[in-house]
Amino acid sequence: MISKAFAVFNKDFHSELRTRYAINSLAMFVIVAISVIMFAVGQEKISEGLTGGLFWVVIFFTAMSGLARTFVSEEERGTSLTLQLVASPSAVFSGKLLFNIILVFCMNTVIALLYAALFESFVIKNYSLFFFSFVLGNIGLAISSTIIAAIISKAGAKGTLYPVLSFPILLPLILTSVQLTLFSLDGTSIEDAKFELAIVVSYDVIMLTVSYMLFDFIWKD
């Protein structure tokens, strides 16, 4: 199963390298979103709390613009039936999830670097806390958006429905991650942020199990 999952991942990775559709659109979206925020902010000096929130606003909308591709492109090209024959549902999901996790990590690293360079108040005081919350938050984001992307690809309307469906599911993760980002900007120690980290970890675990359990129903129809 693991080798099948890697095969699915490999296929996605190579087709992505050939077209560079997701990477290009994500990169452009990040630049557009951040520049819109920069224009809106103008010469004002915004507070730490606001930058922490805006950071996750950009991450959320960028994820919504690009992460649905993995499943929607299968449906568009009509290759999902072949994929069903070749690999088991959990292998397909694992492959797609791996691809999305890597995509999310690339995208969010770029966003974090841009924020650190462009916003004066985005100064991280506690790097290890930021790192942990960043990794856990990214994994959670990838898991939820992958399973929702699978639902979307089977539904009729593709573009507009994705953020609508994802937002309530992602809301606990985003709220906690905003809080964790604020903590790392404040310089709060990891000890004090244990509760929030535990919430994000449990979110990731629960979402992962639920996704694996329910993906069979979405995939086989």
Partner: peptide, 19 residues
């Protein structure tokens, strides 16, 4: 699909109580 979605959504509800 709506059954799957409502089950996923149901799982997130306890988080709100804690967060």
């Amino acid at each position: 699909l709506s059954s799957v979605y409502s089950m996923i959504a149901f799982v997130t509800v306890p988080f709100f109580i804690f967060i």
